Simulated scan of single mutants.
Amino acid sequence: MANGKNALVTGSTSGIGLGIAKALAQAGYNVMFNGLVRNDEERNAAEKVAQDVAKEYGVKTLFNPANMMKGEEIRAMIAQAEQTWGSVDVLVNNAGIQFVSPIEDFPEDKWDAIIAINLTAAFHTSKAVWKGMKARGWGRIINITSAHALQASEFKSAYVASKHGVTGLTKTLALEGATCGITCNAICPGYVLTPLVEGQIPDQMKAHNMSREEVIQKVMLYKHAIKDFVTVEQIGALVVFLASDAAKLITGVSIPVDGGWSAQ
Rank of each mutant, 00 (worst) to 15 (best):
G4D: 04
G4N: 04
S12F: 11
A25C: 05
A27F: 10
Y29P: 00
N30K: 01
N30G: 07
N30S: 13
M32E: 11
F33K: 03
L36T: 12
L36C: 04
V37K: 04
N44F: 03
N44Q: 15
A45M: 09
A45E: 12
E47L: 04
K48P: 00
A54E: 12
A54L: 08
K55Q: 14
E56A: 15
K60M: 08
K60N: 14
N64R: 07
N64C: 11
P65C: 09
I74S: 05
I74A: 10
A81M: 14
S87E: 14
S87P: 00
N94K: 02
F99I: 00
S101I: 01
E104Q: 14
D105A: 09
A113H: 07
A116F: 01
I117Q: 03
I117K: 06
F123L: 08
M133T: 07
R140G: 04
I141T: 03
L150V: 05
Q151T: 06
A152H: 00
A152I: 01
H164Y: 15
G165L: 03
L169K: 02
T172E: 07
L175V: 14
E176H: 10
A178L: 12
C180V: 15
I182Q: 01
C184Y: 04
A186L: 04
P189T: 13
G190D: 01
V192T: 15
T194K: 12
L196H: 13
L196K: 14
V197G: 06
E198C: 06
I201G: 06
K206E: 15
H208N: 15
S211G: 14
E214Q: 15
V215E: 04
L221M: 08
K227E: 05
K227P: 00
G236I: 03
V240I: 10
L242F: 08
L242H: 09
K248E: 12
K248M: 10
K248D: 12
D258A: 07
D258I: 11
S262W: 03
Q264D: 02
